[in-house]
Design a protein around this nucleic acid. Structure first.
Lengths: 149, 149
DNA sequence: AAAAACCTCACTAAAATGGTCACGTTTTCG
DNA sequence: CGAAAACGTGACCATTTTAGTGAGGTTTTT
């Protein structure tokens, strides 16, 4: 039940772009540094994300990447599915490509796996990158509050 | 976010044992046949489950396996964790062995991953094998009802 | 004593994972 | 213009995990 490092890197890269203010693109090297991602691997990941239409790039000096959509219209679940494939504990409850179960009439675990998949979806498909940024801003404010005020 | 076939086999093996009435043990070959599990692989899995104290075995003719605990005191989550390891999308939110995050102060995704882990746990740790059996009996009854009554 | 069943433990082929390398193309700026 | 900065492309690779298989041994029942 775990997420690949590639997927986690992709999410962090998107987060860095979402956090970046203004219309100017952010360089790969900057993303890599801020989010502790191996730069060569990050290049591969960003290329893939570009292929999925999640980010846009600008070449040349002063080039870099930026989000293709506003952060409040981009969910974590979308990226997870794009990089790691369907969010489903077993193939038969996948929403995009549900593989037919080998048991006639469906196996004994079908409703159970469905509930697991739904529970995960309820979290990842309702969380946008704007939500994550807001959550961290709140956390940071509370932290300062504990010490200063 | 998916479960290994080994884990799924283990769950189905346990299910077969939970379904088996009486105190007499169930043979590996019977479990394999009912749940469509490669028999050699099932031997490996049952040995592992025995090591975890989930099942007991009897050797010799008329031997086989049975549950070490009643089905209503055995959750799906326990088996999943035992076979596949901690139920956590990333290591830092694992309950048993939480690996320290490389980001000082915790990364931006920590609360999010925690919510994902909790959502999964809420399902798998609250579902016992007795629950699954009851659910399938209900499903079967409803099915007969649609046709006969 | 023979047959049925579990036990041990080594082994392996294939796929996924987590990257790296070399070289190419585009854009900006002095 | 020309060089430097930055993204683009495709192959490549080592390690780990996955999903099993095989051979032979031990225990229990009939």
């Amino acid at each position: 039940m775990s997420v690949s490092s590639k997927c986690y890197y992709a999410l962090r890269a998107i987060y860095a772009l979402a956090e970046h203010p203004g219309p100017e693109p952010l360089k790969i090297a900057d993303i890599a540094e801020r989010q502790l991602i191996p730069i060569r691997f990050l290049e591969v990941i960003l290329t893939q994300l570009k292929g999925g239409g999640f980010v846009q790039s600008r070449r040349g000096a002063e080039g870099g990447y930026r989000l293709a959509r506003p952060a409040d219209q981009l969910t974590v679940g979308e990226i997870m599915r794009y990089i790691d494939g369907p969010i489903a504990p077993v193939d038969c409850v996948s929403q995009s490509r549900p593989k037919v179960c080998e048991f006639p009439g469906g196996c004994n675990f079908f409703p159970f796996w469905g509930r697991v998949r739904q529970a995960i979806s309820d979290v990842v498909d309702k969380t946008t990158f704007a939500d994550l940024i807001r959550e961290n801003r709140d956390r940071a404010n509370r932290y300062i509050g504990d010490w200063i005020i």
